[in-house]
């Protein structure tokens, strides 16, 4: 994914167990604080990261997260990239619908996470794994 402008400060974490979800949350939080995101924006981004990390663990059978600080010249932002080699999502439109659930959450994982961030990219297909990249900009 578009990590070209991330300036070489990428921190990566494996997501293979329950406690990794907590670790991803903590890493995203500390990077969001450093990038001077407001408290509300920090909370939204960390919550989105938590949803996506759990998706990576539960549906993707584990994977990894990469957190980087990005800039567009005027503002700083935090970009989080999730990747897994799991079964992928066959019907993306359905998966992005509010209330759709494969049984473990409240069916708000993907669609909810998208509402909490400024940029949301997803690349998936049956048997192709899933890669999700989200970005939150400082205001």
């Amino acid at each position: 994914m578009a990590l070209a402008d991330s300036g070489g400060d990428v921190e990566a974490l494996p997501i293979t167990a329950d406690e990794d979800v907590v670790r991803v949350r903590q890493l995203v939080r500390s990077r969001a604080v450093a990038a001077k995101l407001s408290l509300i924006d920090q909370t939204k981004l960390v919550t989105a990261a938590s949803e996506l990390a759990r998706n990576t663990l539960v549906h993707g059978g584990g994977g990894r997260a990469e957190v980087s600080t990005v800039t567009n010249g005027r503002r700083n932002g935090i970009r989080v990239h999730f990747a897994d080699d799991g079964p992928g999502i066959a019907d993306l439109d359905l998966a992005m619908t509010d209330g759709y659930t494969s049984g473990t959450g409240m069916g708000l994982g993907l669609s909810g996470a998208r509402r909490l961030v400024d940029e949301f990219d997803i690349d998936t297909g049956p048997g192709a794994g899933t890669r999700v990249t989200v970005t939150k900009w400082s205001r």
Binding site: T43, K44, G112, A113, R115
Partner: peptide, 14 residues
């Protein structure tokens, strides 16, 4: 519940 958490939950749709 903290204000930031409440605002986020509403946005999340929960």
């Amino acid at each position: 519940m903290r204000p930031a958490v409440a605002i986020t939950l509403v946005e999340l749709g929960l």
